[in-house]
Simulated scan of single mutants.
Amino acid sequence: MASTDEVNLTAPHTPHERAIEAFNHVLREIKLAVIALRRNWDIHEPRMWSRAAGLSDVKLTTFTIEDDLVEIRTGAVSYGTIIFGKIRIPAVNDELGEGFIHVRIHDPPNKGEGDVMFHSIFTMEGKRDADGHPHLWRAIQVKAEPLEFFNE
């Protein structure tokens, strides 16, 4: 598996048609992962998905790639292309502003979108304050949170 030192990501940019096709290919898997992750985290650390508290699974996953994939970054690896995407969650707009999930997918070479694979959703786990105490768990990111390499 690639690491941040091995992948030279493009600058953040609006998605092109190929990225839209790739994310649409795994959209169902992304939505199922959002639901499963929230349920799992709610058992262990409910703050992780707190921005979605009170939202049904349907409301939480009412997003489309065409309307809500707002930014991507890509990086070539020996086994294809890693694509990171920032997807808006329309049902989340709270005191922190709009909500976004950061998603990682993989596009192996030479087969079009037919072999695109969902990889993971970024979760900010226990970001530490100046004293070293964990204080921030966040699966739904703020708009200003940069779309960076992650390996989760």
Rank of each mutant, 00 (worst) to 15 (best):
G75K: 00
R47K: 12
I140F: 00
N93A: 09
F150S: 07
W137A: 00
T81W: 09
T81K: 11
I43G: 03
V70Y: 06
L69S: 02
I87W: 05
D42I: 05
P134T: 00
E45I: 05
H119E: 13
G80R: 00
V70Q: 12
F23I: 04
D67S: 12
I43P: 06
F118M: 06
W137S: 01
K111N: 13
T4W: 01
L9G: 00
M124H: 13
T61I: 01
H119N: 13
H133T: 10
D107K: 15
E6N: 08
V142A: 14
R39T: 08
R28Y: 14
N110M: 15
T10S: 10
M48Y: 00
I83P: 08
F150I: 11
S56L: 02
P108V: 04
K86N: 06
K59W: 07
I89L: 02
G97R: 04
E152N: 13
V103A: 08
T81Y: 11
E148T: 14
W137R: 00
S120W: 10
H106K: 14
G54K: 01
I140T: 02
P15M: 08
A33V: 12
T74A: 07
I82E: 15
V7S: 06
G75A: 01
S56G: 04
F149Q: 10
V103F: 03
I140A: 03
F100H: 04
P146Y: 08
F84Q: 04
A144C: 11
F118L: 09
Y79D: 15
L60E: 02
E113I: 04
F118D: 05
G80C: 02
A2T: 04
E6S: 13
I121M: 04
E71A: 05
A11R: 13
A52Y: 00
I20E: 07
A2D: 12
W137C: 00
R73V: 00
I20S: 03
S78H: 15
I35V: 14
I20G: 06
A139R: 03
D94Q: 12
D94R: 12
R73F: 01
V116K: 00
M1K: 08
K59L: 12
K111C: 11
R38V: 04
S78N: 13
I65V: 14
I105R: 07
I89E: 05
H119A: 10
G114H: 09
N110G: 10
L96I: 11
P12E: 06
P90V: 05
